[in-house]
Design a protein around this nucleic acid. Structure first.
Lengths: 352, 352
DNA sequence: CTGAAAGCGCTAACAG
DNA sequence: CTGTTAGCGCTTTCAG
């Protein structure tokens, strides 16, 4: 490679460096750096001139150089189990919007091996030089993971799980279960089925378990019991809800209402009901969780989760943490409120 | 900041640099660099030792430093109109998988202002120092954009659009329309409606227009005409399909079959049919495009698009381009094959 | 096959 | 308020 090119005006499509700007503006690179980053101690006139020249030269600071010198990459990553699902893509969308607004780059990392939560952390840990912070979405971090992450020079926010030490945003899953089932009980239902239980509860945080616990509480408050026989699985997919729903609805003594732990499973249940010739809500009431776009069209009653907002809140919390606002140095644990959205899939049981 | 830390073994969670590895292995940093990157001209024994030491020290090259020195960031970006939709999140998932495999970081960029395609390019162009390449997904690039992009030191691949100069992957939308409607015609349908037309066709590439053109061709081949009155909109959303579908199906002389340009619009049509008390396929046949998960459960006949694969193919093409395989220097235009998936939503018309 | 040296473009003290 | 001076950690000629 030839010796360094002189600090002349760049020609054509050549990228201009801070040095080009400096010489063109007749100041030092340090001043350009300060001026362009809005740091104090720069004469207004100087700043104006530098900005002017920078614009003319279409100067854009090289992120790598800046990261190397300053130690911050102006990028964050979201770690999700997968990205092509309604829930996760919406979380990412929320985070992306905030990042774009603040000029941060957003990397997406998937942690496919759900089993090995370790995996996720290791992968992510390798990024401590590449990004300034991480958002873990529904990734079960254990204490070791948290400790490991804490050593690194990284901002961390979790969604779903609430750890000690890192800010988090989540919903109150017990309350979600409660709201859903209280609605059903208020309508007069007594035999209530559940769709979405997991074979084995995850060690760290257990979304289905919590929603079911909330359901059980609501039932208990009404002097009723949650019948274990009426708890089906569903894998949190449409197909899973379809199968488990059909199973549940073909029982001789089928429930008069079903609480699906996610809208997608509820969609499956809708189809199962149709397969069996059961009308909703006349023969069976149905309530979901999420407020998926399709829920509205289907008229599905549901407990709305503001998923995009979760991503946005997490990103904002992370960026705040990175910007080092000392006032917000304490780890906030945000609990996003859910709300019951009553549509046409729930009604009083026909034959109580 | 104190003067540079000496090149000693890093303590605790401190990041180890190439220099730590070099001194620990008793070689120069240059040799470490070569050894670890699999470059030639390194004694096998040396390489082994360096690798060993690097592992022990948990050395990970700093991407920013490496980018600065070598000019490549080992990161790419996907530019999508939005990320929280079935189609786009699946494309991103495909790209992500390939990137993860090859150790590339994946940035996500959304170009929300659909109107201003310019926007997308400008945003992306600003990344020419941050990423090595870009994947544009369904972003209409015009000739100026292409020229602009070509100037930059960036690999580019497009999905959906086929430009001159950049590799691309797309489906043959005319054929998709053709396949769908040929199936309907073969079943005996004559009055076929379409869901998903756009008010105004985009300037550069027009997915709905092409699918409709294919439909028209199929009809023409059978000596039939596509009735403009039977072409509804749908916005490519469930809700849009619902509305447009209801409109179409409440006509006195309604079509015996509907070709929805996307599965999500077909779902809307399913609900519209249900609203109107029409049975599928007895009263009206329905075919979509995509093969969304819900399509299977709903029994929707559809033309399958292998969306995840599109993302993967594009990413692979991009990485190949970046790795500079001179053999593949010529811009490939991949056309992903679609296939008809016949389920239970289509049948012969009841009363022809 | 290996080392020395010169940067990549930017930031951050520290003097003026 | 501004310039000078060191590097950030890595890659890459160019000599051994």
């Amino acid at each position: 490679m030839p010796p360094t090119t002189p600090a002349s005006i760049p020609s054509g499509a050549e990228r201009s460096t801070i040095e080009h700007v400096a010489t063109a503006a007749g100041v030092s690179v340090a001043t350009v750096s300060r001026a362009l980053r809005g740091l104090p101690n720069v004469a207004v006139s100087t700043r104006a001139r530098v900005e002017e020249v920078a614009r003319e030269l279409k100067y854009r600071p090289d992120p790598a150089a800046s990261r190397l010198a300053a130690g911050r990459s102006h990028a964050i990553a979201v770690v999700v189990p997968l990205i092509n699902s309604w829930y996760f893509s919406n979380v990412v969308a929320g985070a992306e919007a905030v990042c774009a607004e603040d000029g941060y780059d957003l990397l997406v990392l998937t942690a496919p091996n759900e089993a090995t939560r370790r995996q996720a952390v290791d992968t992510a840990a390798g990024l401590d030089r590449r990004v300034d912070g991480l958002i873990f979405v529904e990734v079960g971090l254990d204490d070791d993971d948290v400790a490991d992450l804490a050593t690194r020079r990284l901002g961390v926010v979790t969604i779903g799980q609430e750890t000690t030490g890192f800010p988090s945003v989540r919903v109150d899953n017990v309350t979600i279960g409660r709201m859903a089932v209280e609605h059903l009980i208020a309508l007069g239902h007594r035999r209530i089925g559940v769709l979405g239980a997991q074979a084995e509860a995850p060690a760290h945080f257990d979304v289905p378990g919590q929603r079911i616990a909330g359901a059980a509480e609501a039932l208990a408050d009404a002097g009723l019991r949650l019948d274990d026989d009426l708890i089906g699985t569903g894998e949190f997919t449409v197909e899973g809800g379809h199968e488990a729903g059909r199973e549940l609805l073909s029982r001789p003594n089928r429930p008069t209402a079903i609480f699906a732990l996610s809208d997608e499973m509820a969609f499956g249940a809708v189809i199962a009901a149709r397969d069996l010739g059961l009308a909703i809500p006349d023969d069976v009431s149905l309530i979901g969780v999420d407020d998926h776009e399709v829920a509205e069209v289907l008229g599905l009653t549901t407990v709305r989760q503001r998923v995009v907002e979760h991503g946005a809140l997490a990103a904002r919390a992370l960026l705040r943490q990175l910007t080092g606002h000392p006032s917000t140095r304490v780890a906030e644990h945000l609990v996003s409120h859910s709300e019951l959205v009553i549509r046409s899939s729930t009604s009083a049981p026909c034959v109580p």
